[in-house]
Amino acid sequence: MTLTPILAMRWWLPQDAALHGAALDREMYLALWIMTGLLATAHLVMLVGLCIGRREAKRSIWRLEVAPLLLLTILFGWMTIRAERLWAATRYAGADPAVMQVEVVGAQFVWYFRYPGADARFGKTKPELVQPGEGNPLGIDPGDEDGRDDRVSSELVLPIGREVDLRIRSLDVIHGFSVPEMRVKQNAIPGQVFHIHFTPVHEGRYAVLCTQVCGLGHYRMQAAVRVVSIAEFARWSER
């Protein structure tokens, strides 16, 4: 029996490759350290309390219960305010309407990424036109002008340093769109469209996972995000 697998485990968060990730990571580590401190303190108090001799003196509820409770309430309140600011900063405002749009579509057990092309408009889709075998996995309506230059990819290619607005939907069941390195996660729910936006700041290739049980192929429902330089993105777009 060797301890190597445990020691080799990744103990900290994965690399942060998104602009909003640094603030999130700070908040995460702060919360985890505060909670580790509370865990240790509570156990220490319990152990010391069990080891010392018996005390029969009348104890003050105000000093022993109410005062610590007030302090902890203030601590939780402070954490809540910080957390609410972070949440508001990433989610309250939508992306700038001018940013790059990509549509993310989950289907058992694949992720598709649709780029709107030069017109920056997505063409209409129809469920009855969905034909993955014939190159139309999303059912783009050939009669719609906007859809002519739409491009469907199995890989999410993003230019570095440019904000992207993802419109997330699903063809069949609920999927969970997640890119740990981009610090984003959003369910794809059939019948509805949800938006999340972020800015990738590190070039590289990262995994897209499905984080919501979606059927027997759920475990292999993966894709990739490739963050590339602006010049390379332009080349990829023209290809």
Binding site: M28, T90, T211
Partner: peptide, 9 residues
């Protein structure tokens, strides 16, 4: 914390 849960969910 919703922002943290969005990572841990």
């Amino acid at each position: 914390q919703p922002a943290l849960d969005a990572y841990l969910h």
